[in-house]
Computed example of a mutant assay.
Amino acid sequence: MTADRLALSGARLVLPGGVVEGDRLAVEGERIAGLGGTATPGDLDLTGYTVVPGFVDLHVHGGGGASYASGIAEEALRAARTHLEHGTTTTVASTVTGEIDDLARQAAVLSELAEDGVVAGVHFEGPFISRNRCGAHRPDLLRDPDPALVRKLVDAARGHARMVTLAPELPGGLDSVRMLADLGVIAAVGHTDSDYTRTLEAIGAGATVATHLFNAMPGIAHRAPGPIVALLEDERVTVELINDGVHLHPSVLDLAYGTAGASRVALITDAMGAAGMGDGLYPLGPLQVEVEDGVARLVEGGAIAGSTLTLDVAFKRSVTVNGLSLNQAVESLSTVPARLLGLADRVGTLETGKLADLVVVDSTSYDLVAVMRRGEWITGGERFAPITTA
């Protein structure tokens, strides 16, 4: 079997139609060339392992000690590589609140990496968010979502702006949502103090994503349901959830799945530079973050400042803690975000003709074993031995 052709045999494959045990997946070049069939000599033996599509992260700020908000290409490359080694084969680079001109410069750098295929686009989280729900964003840098300012950032990304998180209750919020929808950029409701009615108006104007649902927004009250209920109940909305055991209690995550279903949930990391690293001090845009026992908090004020999560951990937690089926976990980690980004024809499921973006996990522990992107092993491929007899 040539270097640009290989086959994996004996694995459990999580396919769109269900889970198939002990099957065969053939790769040719960058793509999946076929599914099913009998193992042949030279195939790699993946008995005891499970193969799922590469993970797709809609919302991640950094990793490996590096930040997408640095505006430095080498840092962005390091962050992307860190998450790639943990199974994220498609990643959207998220910025953090800063001066408009600084964000535009960051977007220009990230757009070049998008053109090179390193990232799948840019997500602007801030500065168009509520001061009352700003979390790990500098309040003095926040701005109302004036459509002209929003458009300036979108244009700076040179066609690679994928998503803008904003608070729709702020002046210009609904107009910006409409503009983003017209431009084909995802308008996401987040870091918001919006009520139920204004959130419904934002959805009606074209908002289709809830940025890290439950976090940085009002909770549910019995006479004031707030944004959470509005976002959960509307079938047009995809809800982001951070399954790291810190941002959400497992029962809250279960509630979201029970209401929206896996077909409307995108599991994200919201990771900052400490992902894949140890405890210590790290920058998050213009702010300093201290990580202790894997939990990231602002040095000043102590607010949770993103996560140190990687999506392989989110996958394992979803199956072992929340009891999701393998197909449900794959939906939320791969299929749903790929569809939202308009990339479902290339990634998000294991199907013939799609890119060979694969994650291999142990079938018992669900720990990460290997990652393949576009037909090339990124990590772990050396552990699989070829089959020598039919």
Rank of each mutant, 00 (worst) to 15 (best):
M277R: 14
M277F: 06
Y282H: 03
Y282N: 01
L287E: 11
Q288M: 14
Q288R: 11
E292R: 15
E292L: 11
V295C: 07
L298P: 07
E300G: 15
G302N: 06
I304P: 13
I304S: 12
A305R: 06
A305Q: 08
G306S: 09
G306Y: 05
S307L: 11
T308K: 03
D312H: 11
V313D: 11
R317G: 03
V321H: 09
N322H: 15
N322P: 06
N322Q: 15
L324I: 09
S325I: 12
L326G: 10
A329M: 02
A329C: 07
V330T: 12
E331N: 13
S332G: 08
S332D: 03
L333A: 04
L333Q: 06
L333I: 06
L333H: 11
S334H: 00
S334W: 00
T335F: 05
R339L: 01
L340R: 12
G342H: 01
L343T: 04
L343R: 11
R346I: 01
R346G: 08
E351V: 02
E351Y: 12
T352K: 03
K354N: 01
L355T: 04
A356S: 11
V359C: 06
V359L: 07
V359A: 01
D362E: 03
T364K: 15
Y366A: 04
D367V: 08
D367P: 04
V371M: 10
V371W: 02
M372E: 15
R374Y: 14
R374Q: 15
R374L: 10
G375T: 12
